[in-house]
Amino acid sequence: MVLQNPHRSTTFSSSSLQQSAPQDIICDHSLTPGWYQFQIFDKRARMPTQCVEVNHCGTQAPVWLSLGDGETLPGSLEVKQLTACAAWKIFQSGSKDCCMFRIPVTVRSCGDFYVYLLQPTPGCMGYCAQENLPTMPSFLCGPDEVNAGGLCKSKSLTAPPPAPSVPVIVSEVKGHTMYLRCSFDSSSSSSVGFVVAWSRLSPEGRKEELRQEATIHTSALIELDGFNLRLGDRIYCSSFSFLLESPDIRGAPVESQEFFAGIKLKPEVSRVSENGRRHRLLVESSVPVPCPDGSFSSAEKCVLSLQLSTSSEGKDQKN
């Protein structure tokens, strides 16, 4: 994916946006995790490696790539896990902190440009871009080869990473927003990333892919937003691992069990006759039911109301 808003440039002051168009302030807190390339006016760019002034890059808290002692950007076709920093001004003292927040960023050199594995920022911050990307030496492997530590090796000689464990879907609530989390484990000793794909079962019984994302974590979230993903949906997630140094080398995908997002009645089918024996039915929800603010402190109870309706099976049969 490409981030090409020219306001991300380190030379762009955000002060004008704050006064004339505050809605255009860049906030990457909702950025989809994945691999990104920076461009400014259709020219390749990169993340700056020096502290950026506050209120630049189209945002109030610009995010730049911090290189510690002995750290360097990856060489041609290499991958490195580095740290990005968000600059912020402490208003009480007026002093600036170049690294108020730290964000993990994986950087990959693609010969003559960089790509970055970015995560959402912890607040309204924006990733910066710097023009005039210096030319890096071109070093490309053949179509049947991969780069491994700067050396071209045959794909057939490079073992794929082991498959992750079977993913498990659980629900969780953050504030008033409901999410599903796909979690799994990895036994790989190499530097690997993961691709997580979400899908749901259509009314016709076909699996429809909803979203796919790359991450270096062993879990991923998706929002139960009521539009793309709704109560009553039957949901799956799958994951496979890939080598960060050689993304073409992938492991086998593994899919979760079906997760029904909604309320189930157990048993699902029960014949209840008039003047018959009692039946115990269990109402079970696989997702949390958020309560309105203050419902526990007031006299109003946080309840979920259900209505039971009956239907006749035939003229000679009772309800």
Rank of each mutant, 00 (worst) to 15 (best):
P62K: 01
T59N: 07
S15T: 07
S154D: 10
V105H: 08
T106S: 15
G149M: 01
P292G: 07
H56V: 00
Q18N: 02
E268H: 08
C182H: 04
F259I: 03
L265K: 12
H29K: 07
A148I: 12
S199A: 14
S219F: 15
V168L: 12
S191E: 13
S188A: 15
A61C: 14
K43Q: 12
Y179K: 05
G111T: 04
K315T: 11
M136E: 10
H7T: 11
L140C: 09
L82N: 06
D69A: 14
P288H: 01
E208F: 02
F227E: 14
L3D: 08
A21G: 00
E172L: 14
W198C: 06
K89C: 10
L224A: 09
E53S: 13
F139N: 03
P161F: 03
A84R: 02
V107Y: 11
C291L: 03
T10I: 15
G68S: 14
S156N: 09
Q130C: 05
R181T: 11
V192N: 05
P288C: 08
H279T: 04
L180A: 05
S187P: 05
E258V: 14
I216S: 15
H217T: 15
P167M: 03
S16D: 01
Q4T: 09
V115E: 15
F12S: 06
S171T: 08
D293N: 08
S138P: 00
M1I: 08
S286I: 00
V254C: 08
F38N: 04
L17R: 01
T158S: 03
R200E: 06
D69N: 15
S138E: 09
F91K: 14
E300N: 12
A61F: 13
M125L: 13
L210G: 09
L308I: 14
C152G: 08
R181H: 09
F101H: 15
Y236S: 04
E53W: 05
S93L: 08
A220T: 05
L117P: 00
A84Q: 03
F227Y: 14
E208A: 08
S95N: 13
M136R: 02
Q130M: 06
T218F: 03
I26F: 01
R234K: 13
V54E: 10
L31I: 02
K318R: 12
K318Y: 10
N319H: 14
R280F: 01
F260T: 02
T158Q: 09
S297R: 10
G232T: 04
R46W: 08
E213G: 07
T11E: 11
L221Y: 13
P247T: 00
R200I: 05
W35Q: 05
A87F: 02
E145R: 05
F113E: 12
T72Q: 15
R46Y: 10
V54F: 06
V287Y: 01
P134E: 10
K80V: 08
T121V: 06
